[in-house]
Design a protein around this nucleic acid. Structure first.
Lengths: 195, 195
DNA sequence: AAATTATGACTGACCAGTCGGTCATACAAG
DNA sequence: CTTGTATGACCGACTGGTCAGTCATAATTT
């Protein structure tokens, strides 16, 4: 039961923060959820802030890994993009209730926009994602599969698309109903850019 | 300077919550921003919670009013939908920094999903919106302007679309750059459902 | 001068982070 | 083998600071 305690704490923290929010989620709650003492949490993390940062990294890392697998594949641009959408949404569904942590990530990033002049971690990830998508789009246009477009515009649109769907999925929380949305979403998006 | 004090407080609260977040934004901050004493805030609102609820109503009310104007118009379904997208995004841009409050609304709603079995306020608004959009879509299909589709699926997609774009706009915060995205977004979405 | 409205000092609840202490385990000496 | 000793993971009571909400008083209006 006691494997990597750091991971154990992160997973507990995701559950707690998803349920209560970043501010209301107490360190004591995380400790209880992880089945350890409060003091022990501080053996592994310096502060609450640091736990949240670790969650951010963990969630984003996973997304990026999945993305990397796709990019390396030898699918056609159209199939690559479809797979991207499909897998992205399946990943959301796979997160279960932990997906509610996404709103905390977003809210946190939004607050950051006021303070730091510079990049949030989340912004960096988005930029990375956008670069990859633009590349697929360009390849698709060159292959004659996609219409002419503003790559930057459509890449941003795709991000909006996926975040928005994540949000809708949180609200719906009904796999079956969401399957319907997912199907239409992919169909509409692809029709929107296909030649 | 002292018109409707309730509205004055709400506006101050939007600024404060957008900048600091719902938890970190102190009542004292709101009072200072509104140019009144802390105690006075409690003359108009019973609690912090109540202020937030008022913000929710205020923001959503405005959205709904705008929507109602469109529905009543005698535009064709296609033009109605395009106007909906266009106006929706212009409304976002018009919110300025106050748009950052949206993430707080979302995060709050997400937390609510754990506790209440029933509907969040936000969920109700979404449902209302979906009903209106479905009606436009149905009219469009009947008029031969739109392809056959799952109304529920596409309506949800449209919501995802707009929320996602709101989020991207928050991150970009560059009107010019966003104009580009906006144009592609509308083009792609309409292509996705046009016959 | 009574009523209404505004104020900010005050209070009590709450919680992140600290720290002195416990205890299971490992290793060494007898 | 078993007694003694060292280690550091683990713990939760405690502290210091923060902040929502209260209330006695002050200012303003009627």
């Amino acid at each position: 039961m006691s494997g990597n305690k750091e991971q154990q704490i992160i997973e507990a923290a995701i559950r707690v923060f998803a349920r209560k929010g970043l501010e209301k989620g107490r360190i004591a709650d995380i400790a209880v959820d992880a089945g350890i003492g409060k003091g022990t949490v501080y053996e592994y993390f310096r502060s609450k802030e640091e736990i949240f940062t670790a969650i951010e990294s963990s969630v984003m890392q996973e997304m990026m890994n999945q993305l990397a697998g796709l990019v390396g594949s030898d699918l056609s641009p159209r199939n690559k993009l479809e797979a991207l959408l499909e897998q992205g949404m399946d990943a959301m569904i796979g997160m279960g209730d932990a997906i509610l942590i996404m709103t905390e990530l977003w809210a946190q990033a939004a607050r950051g926009l006021w303070h730091d002049s510079g990049d949030t971690f989340l912004e960096e990830v988005y930029e990375e994602f956008r670069v990859i998508v633009k590349e697929i789009l360009r390849a698709g246009v060159e292959a004659g599969q996609f219409r002419e477009m503003s790559y930057e515009g459509v890449a941003t649109l795709l991000l909006a698309f996926m975040d928005g769907l994540a949000w809708q999925y949180m609200l719906i929380r009904d796999h079956e109903k969401f399957e319907n949305v997912k199907k239409e979403a992919i169909r509409s998006f692809m029709r929107g850019i296909n030649k």
